[in-house]
Design a protein around this nucleic acid. Structure first.
Length: 120
DNA sequence: GTTCTGACA
DNA sequence: TGTCAGGA
């Protein structure tokens, strides 16, 4: 499929899909006319990438763990690389802190909403 | 009409 | 990331 269709099916703008390809997050064949030709399977891959990106995982890290993502959403390393493991641990901690921050703000907003709902 | 590359308020 | 340019 061409980039336009993939964009519609994944919700990721064509602009971003080209960006992902540039950074090796996804690969695409080339039609005679130069257009990118994406395989059916990358729809799920793009969704995984977007999920990671939305979670705040930098492209650099995604590039490392992407090849370890099976069809499901599980992560496993057949041969754990010490350096990669260290980076993933840092990433995990960053995500933990961010998650806690998000939760705190959600609770603050929820509390505010409860108070004003009584006012209205 | 759709996509391509490169660049930037 | 959005968007414009200049081509194909």
């Amino acid at each position: 499929m061409r980039i336009g269709e993939l964009a519609e099916r994944t919700g990721a703008p064509a602009r971003m899909l080209r960006y992902y390809e540039q950074h090796g997050l996804i690969t695409a064949e080339r039609s005679p006319n130069g257009y990118r030709d994406f395989p059916e399977a990358i729809v799920d891959r793009v969704r995984q990438i977007r999920g990671l990106l939305d979670a705040g995982v930098p492209v650099k890290i995604i590039k490392q763990i992407l090849p370890c993502l099976g069809s499901p959403e599980e992560i496993y390393f057949p041969v754990p690389d010490p350096e990669m493991l260290a980076q993933l641990e840092e990433q995990r901690d960053r995500m933990t802190r961010k998650a806690e921050c998000v939760l705190r703000n959600r609770d603050a907003i929820a509390a505010y909403l409860e108070r004003v709902s009584g006012t209205a």
